[in-house]
């Protein structure tokens, strides 16, 4: 049997799963980080470009649901592999992983010449996988709390809501930085690992990164294939249980999304006070001087004989013939104005 040049690492289903996770993760980071960093110009520009804060929240929530569904699917598949196919659980962390990590550092420092050989999953990949498991759990729980604060505070102290927000944001930074530093370095920078596109690794890559796995494959060891009857028997147990559990998880997820109408959906509340209520009688705003008492000057009525007369000043300006002379402050007043004050009886 000739040795193949390439080895299948990820099935198509696994690759699709990775792409879905990658897309939802990117969307979550893209819509989540600017929310955490509101106040910074880059964050606010990003929010504006994405269509405003409300749209950003909708995208974030949608991407979260997609990721949750992908995680749910992953659980069902892993369950099938473990309980029905009974494959080796190669991603389980072991003590040897810690040893491997130390040995890699020692090798890189030149303290040892022995290059560490990895099985199907190296400690590098295991760390990433379990970090994701932890992150998804934490983000899911804290996300639920923020999404449904009213119901959360029925059972838990209210302070946990801002605590959840703090953890959600900090964990997001940790996750994004880990992806950038750890994941990008190992599969994009150091070597460009195409297995998530093609599903395959070259023989050379296998030698370098999964020497033990290659050894196993070359030795003709493959996953145990229990006989179809046994699988059928196990499926009869697993499928109903898995269906029940996933139905339960789907219902939970549905509740997660629709459980709570957090706030009223009406438009802004307004003051319902009557605006125009004039004071009656309207006070006349004056200065600080006391308002004089409104008593009219006591003027003697004109003699009845003056009825019909239209000229006044002819006599009164000079006091001719002994008639009352105009007081000094009346200077310049014309005949037409006199009767405003001086009235007939």
């Amino acid at each position: 049997m000739s040795e193949p040049r390439e080895y299948l690492r990820f099935s198509l289903a696994q690759r699709i799963e990775h792409w879905v996770q990658m897309l939802s993760f990117t969307l979550l980071a893209l819509t989540g980080l600017p929310q955490k960093f509101v106040g910074h110009a880059w964050a606010e520009t990003l929010i504006m470009v994405l269509g405003g804060i409300e749209t950003v929240r909708v995208i974030h929530h949608t991407a979260a649901v997609v990721m949750a569904l992908a995680c749910l699917y992953h659980l069902v598949v892993v369950g099938y592999k473990i309980f029905v196919l009974r494959v080796r659980w190669t991603i389980l962390p072991r003590l040897s992983d810690l040893r491997d990590a130390i040995d890699v550092v020692r090798y890189n420092l030149g303290l040892t010449k022995a290059r560490v050989q990895f099985a199907r999953y190296s400690f590098i990949e295991k760390a990433e996988y379990w970090a994701f498991v932890w992150g998804a759990l934490l983000m899911g729980v804290t996300g639920f709390m923020m999404w449904n604060p009213i119901h959360t505070t029925r059972f838990l102290p209210g302070e946990l809501i801002p605590a959840a927000k703090a953890a959600h944001g900090a964990e997001a930074i940790l996750a994004v930085l880990a992806i950038v530093v750890w994941h990008f370095y190992h599969v994009h920078l150091k070597t460009f690992n195409k297995s998530m596109f093609t599903g395959k690794l070259t023989r050379e890559q296998m030698e370098h990164e999964h020497a033990l796995e290659l050894e196993r494959l070359l030795a003709g060891e493959s996953e145990p294939h229990p006989d179809p009857h046994l699988i059928k028997k196990r499926e009869r147990v697993y499928i109903p249980i898995a269906a029940l559990l996933s139905a339960g998880m789907l219902v939970t997820l549905f509740l997660f999304v629709t459980y709570e109408q957090t706030a009223i959906t009406t438009l802004p509340r307004r003051a319902t006070v009557q605006v125009f209520v004039p004071l009656t009688p309207t006070p006349i705003l004056r200065g600080t001087l006391p308002t004089p008492t409104l008593t009219p000057p006591t003027l003697k009525p004109l003699p009845a004989s003056h009825a019909g007369r239209t000229v006044c000043n002819v006599c009164h300006e000079t006091g001719a013939g002994g008639v009352p002379k105009n007081p000094p402050d009346h200077a310049g007043r014309t005949d037409a104005t006199c009767t405003a004050c001086h009235k007939l009886p």
């Binding site: 604060p149 505070t153 029925r154 209210g158 809501i161 957090t262 706030a263």
Partner: peptide
Amino acid sequence: QQCHPDATLDFPSSWM
């Protein structure tokens, strides 16, 4: 409760 009518006594502490 003006905006969150279903809020219960511990809800206000979710605001710092």
